[in-house]
């Protein structure tokens, strides 16, 4: 009975937190809900292994991270990570003059990485732009830049060639650049 109460508390205390964390990585709300549920079920089963070495919160987030990776592994079974037309063209395709110099020079965003990260409007703009990527690009970018997996690990898990991974990341970054430039920097004065 005490255990039941405890797991009910998890839902109240950590449910939204876990859900938001998942939603950044997994775009689909239904998938995200499912992952939170699977996480809490796994936590309940592994309850005895929790020995208070970490806080309950970080223990749950640790399990959640594994379940999110499992989700990406499952997705891989249904789709290929080869480049396809649905992924859109490389935004840099026509960005250069014939002599290889920039035709449309990137704009100075007038900030630096540290300052930018403190700007919640900008972080939100990135979140919005991320949702505009194709599912494949989004997943790979998330694994690399948000989950922080090593390139080798992503290639192994997603069964893609290193050159393919690199092309996807390069194009994803360029699409994000373009999106941020139009959605954020263009609207200011």
């Amino acid at each position: 009975m005490a255990e039941l109460l405890n797991s009910d508390l998890w839902v109240e205390q950590y449910g939204d937190m876990l859900y938001r964390y998942t939603l950044v990585r997994v775009k689909d709300p239904d998938d995200a809900e499912e992952i939170v549920q699977v996480t809490l079920l796994a936590a309940l089963q592994a309850k005895d292994s929790f020995q208070g070495r970490s806080t309950e919160k970080s223990w749950l987030f640790g399990i959640l991270k594994h379940k999110i990776l499992d989700h990406f592994r499952d997705l891989k079974k249904h789709r290929t990570y080869e480049l396809a037309s649905e992924d859109g063209p490389d935004p840099l395709e026509n960005a250069y003059l014939h002599n290889g110099q920039w035709a449309n020079a990137p704009k100075n965003w007038d900030t630096d990485p540290h300052k930018a990260a403190e700007n919640s409007q900008l972080v939100e703009a990135l979140s919005m732009c991320l949702d505009k990527l194709s599912e494949k690009f989004r997943n790979i970018f998330v694994l690399k830049e948000i989950e922080g997996l090593a390139s080798e690990e992503i290639c192994k898990e997603m069964e893609i060639q290193p050159t393919n991974l690199w092309v996807i990341l390069h194009r994803a970054r360029n699409q994000l650049r373009k999106c941020l430039e139009t959605s954020h920097w263009n609207t200011r004065k």
């Binding site: 990135l126 991320l130 948000i146 922080g148």
Partner: peptide, 12 residues
């Protein structure tokens, strides 16, 4: 690109 990386880490 560095700014995009910093934003992504913050988002995570």
């Amino acid at each position: 690109l560095e700014i995009i990386r910093a934003l992504a880490r913050k988002l995570g």
